[in-house]
Design a protein around this nucleic acid. Structure first.
Length: 424
RNA sequence: GGAGAGGUGGGAGAGUGGCUUAAUCCACCAGUUUGCUAAACUGACGUACUCGUUUAGGGUACCGGGGGUUCGAAUCCCCCCCUCUCCGCCA
């Protein structure tokens, strides 16, 4: 979330940026500022009342100790009224603070100055794309047919065991998953990321820290009996490693990578867009997460983009990179690059990675700070993350684009991981 | 799941109702000494909010979390969470 200070410091600029983000409830800004003013006034009052109370208590204490019981009891009577006041204003104060937080978490992150205006995916800026799209022969089929043909992905079986959107990978299909995961992790490690194997269930605090809660509650699977959530992405547990942490400037940069299954309810989505592996409830993903000094976070973002690009290139997949417009940017992100690969049989672009700088938006929720050497003050760190990569759509594109009469050709870079060069 | 013990500042650890504005030690930081390092000595050393034009300096809260008793709570009471030990169950 934003800090009060970020909201106060330049209201015009704030409103302009919120507009780029297509944020409608701008009246919240005024509410927050008014409420904050009240909070301060009331805090002054409660602080003063408590100060008086403390002084009185001290006096009573020393009166008792010097044996002046009469006077002490007299002084006690004076405290009743004050005590009442302290209690009353104290509860008003905490009510206001609570209200303030519920309003603050409704304000999205502010977009970076380079974010293009726009309302939907149509308005995203293509920063890089292939010169020509691959064309397949007329006999080519989409990946769900290929999955069936070679008996490597079984959607019906998943439906039987669990429900729609839980594919079962079999044989070379399963092994391809394992190969991709290891390949991605190795690439990330080479780029300086430390491998983490985190829990797949997280508590409420963690969900709040990275911004999934309270708003996107319906997107996560909730284990009610223990009040835990299945992670929608490794971003949640890996970033929450740094919740309530005070870093030293020397700790930067922090670069972690993690493979996890991801669970998403994807409530409300249906249709041919979600067919096959295009959108599923459980999928595998390797994530990269960075905790950065604010002064270098955008440089880090560019590095992450270059890194993800290099991996896709090694897989020899046609891709494009989009800089998301204000309207398509997620609630918590300041700047996001999406990677899409072209699935040639479906003739569709599929999103396989989303690389974002959240600036201090998550850090404020996480209470993730570092001690700034120059000023000696504690500052909020910047958090970034990206997929490198999400498996299902990569698999979809690999299967579709590489299909031949002899079978599906595996990119050379994966051979050491798969142990086979073709699926037939 | 059952029984017991415990949770105090970056770490160790004292503190069972008011000289606690949390002792002491270690670590970190600055300085003195030193040919350099080490050692020794001296000093500073938490977080958040708030008042103050910036500063200087005040105030309030914080001893796992939440509530309560009391003029006053790290300390007493209740609920919850977590850790450790033993038992049970278990890959």
């Amino acid at each position: 979330m934003l800090t009060i200070n970020q909201i106060q410091v330049n209201k015009e600029d704030l409103l302009r940026k919120l507009q780029i983000k297509n944020f409608k409830k701008i009246e919240l800004v005024e509410e927050i500022l008014t409420l904050d003013k009240q909070r301060r006034e009331i805090q002054q009052k409660t602080d003063q009342l408590q100060s008086e109370m403390n002084l009185l208590s001290k006096e009573i204490g020393s009166l008792f100790q010097s044996g002046k019981k009469e006077e002490a009891n007299l002084a006690k009577e004076k405290t009743a009224n004050l005590k009442e006041e302290v209690k009353k204003w104290g509860s008003v104060h905490s009510e206001i603070e609570e209200k303030l937080t519920t309003l603050l978490v409704q304000i999205p992150n502010l977009p970076h100055k380079s974010v293009p205006a726009g309302h939907s995916a149509e308005d995203n800026e293509i920063t890089e794309t292939v010169s020509e799209l691959p064309e397949l022969s007329e006999t080519s089929v989409p990946h769900w047919d290929l999955g069936k043909k070679y008996d490597i992905i079984d959607f019906e079986l998943g439906t039987k065991i669990t429900g729609a959107g839980f594919p079962v990978y079999k044989g070379k299909g399963a092994k391809l998953q394992r190969a991709l995961i290891n390949f991605f992790l190795d690439e990330n490690e080479k780029a300086g990321y430390k491998e983490i194997l985190p829990p797949l269930l997280v508590n409420e605090d963690s969900g709040f820290g990275t911004g999934q809660l309270p708003d996107k509650e319906g997107q996560m699977y909730h284990v009610q009996i223990d009040n835990l959530y299945l992670i929608p992405t490794a971003e949640v547990p890996v970033t929450n490693i740094y919740r309530d942490v005070l870093l030293s400037e020397d700790d930067f940069p922090i670069k972690n990578t993690a493979y996890t299954p991801c669970f998403r309810r994807e409530a409300g989505s249906y249709g041919k867009d979600v067919r096959g592996l295009n959108r599923v409830h459980q999928f595998d993903k390797v994530e990269i997460v960075q905790i950065q000094n604010p002064s270098t976070s955008y440089q880090a973002l560019e590095e992450m983009v270059a890194h993800v690009k290099s991996i896709i290139e090694k897989l020899e997949l046609p891709f494009r990179i989009l800089k998301l417009c204000g309207g398509d940017l997620s609630f918590t992100s300041a700047l996001t690059y999406d990677f899409e690969v072209f699935a040639a049989a479906q003739k569709r672009w599929l999103e396989v990675s989303s690389v974002s700088n959240f600036e201090s938006y998550q850090a404020v929720r996480l209470k993730l700070r570092y001690k700034d050497k120059a000023s000696g003050k504690n500052q909020y760190a910047h958090t970034l993350n990206g997929s490198s990569l999400a498996l299902p759509r990569i698999v979809a594109a690999l299967l579709e684009n590489n299909q031949t009469e002899e079978g599906i050709k595996i990119p050379e870079v994966l051979w050491p991981y798969t142990g086979f060069k073709v699926i037939n």
